[in-house]
């Protein structure tokens, strides 16, 4: 089972937790990426984030997320994968992304989460724009 969604409203784990239920799994693993207040630059300067705004090429992002979920299912023998990414404004402390997966044993579910997030951050066409405490803004293009 694969579930991929792009949403405009807050992501609550409780809304999604049952989506990876499967009677043949013994491990459910979740990751939430959350808007962080402080970012330390390479030069050691601390920048204070006020809020984040996410933009996507939505149809391509959905396709890319589906592809990487399918790869994760095969690579880690997962029973289910859910990936939810929020677009638009994401205030401090709120989740921009939620990834969950289930597998028969814990090692596969644990391993799949960083694998999925690394690929999401490399290839899925979603971008964040930071608004800092001084109201300056910057698109993040790593």
């Amino acid at each position: 089972m694969i579930l991929i969604r792009l949403v405009q409203s807050p992501i609550e784990l409780s809304d999604w937790s049952s989506t990876i239920d499967d009677p043949d799994t013994g491990a459910h693993a979740w990751f939430a990426g959350v808007t962080r207040r402080k970012t330390t630059t390479e030069g050691g300067r601390v920048r204070i984030t006020k809020t984040l705004h996410y933009q996507a090429h939505e149809s391509m992002a959905l396709g890319q997320l589906q592809q990487l979920a399918e790869q994760a299912m095969r690579t880690y023998s997962l029973a289910a994968v859910v990936i939810v990414h929020r677009l638009g404004e994401v205030p401090l402390g709120q989740a921009s992304v939620l990834v969950g997966c289930s597998s028969a044993h814990r090692r596969d579910a644990f391993s799949a989460l960083p694998w999925i997030m690394d690929r999401l951050k490399a290839d899925v066409p979603i971008w964040k724009r930071e608004t800092f405490a001084d109201d300056s803004t910057e698109w993040i293009h790593p």
Binding site: A56, V97, M117, K121, V124, I126, W127, K128, W139
Partner: peptide, 10 residues
């Protein structure tokens, strides 16, 4: 056709 600058989702 879409031009995709380095992405920063997550």
């Amino acid at each position: 056709l879409a031009l995709i600058p380095p992405v920063s989702g997550g």
